[in-house]
């Protein structure tokens, strides 16, 4: 499957966006998010961006106050996922212009639409920022 979930969490450990590609109950999600956030946020900049948790890996990257955490299968290419996180941020940046935590909070559905164009069922759909953003811009224009 590749990607199992994508989380955006701020420095305080509050979830700002959560997209799961496998079903977890609400309780499992809360527990999982808590554990991961505790593990990842405790690490410093020099340490590597990969954390093993349960039976999968978390690839994470920090942008200002926001952590992007991606849970992947063990056979996934960690470096490519790291690059993907960067692509995701650049895409959001292009849309929101200097994206920050609040943009994602107040435009949660748009962030989800973007994610939807990039990842589906745990696989990468599209890597071109233009292609990702064009349907969203189209909709902004019509509505």
């Amino acid at each position: 499957m590749g990607i199992r979930f994508i989380l955006m969490v701020n420095k305080q450990g509050q979830t700002r966006l959560a997209q799961y590609y496998e079903w977890l109950t609400l309780e499992e999600r809360r527990a999982l998010e808590g554990e991961i956030v505790r593990k990842c946020l405790a690490r410093n900049d020099q340490q590597c961006s990969f954390v093993e948790h349960r039976n999968y890996k978390i690839v994470y990257r920090r942008y200002a106050s926001l952590f992007f955490l991606v849970g992947v299968d063990n056979d996934e290419n960690e470096l490519a996922i790291l690059e993907f996180i960067h692509l995701l941020v650049e895409t959001m940046d292009r849309h929101f212009g200097n994206v920050c935590e609040l943009d994602i909070m107040f435009h949660l559905e748009k962030a989800h639409f973007m994610l939807e164009e990039m990842v589906m069922n745990g696989c990468i759909v599209e890597t071109s920022k233009c292609n990702i953003l064009s349907p969203i811009q189209l909709m902004d224009k019509t509505s």
Binding site: T15, L26, R29, E33, L108, E109
Partner: peptide
């Protein structure tokens, strides 16, 4: 529904 999605993200039923 948009609100519910936000509430869901925060971990409420």
């Amino acid at each position: 529904l948009a609100k519910l999605m936000f509430i869901h993200m925060l971990g409420y039923p």
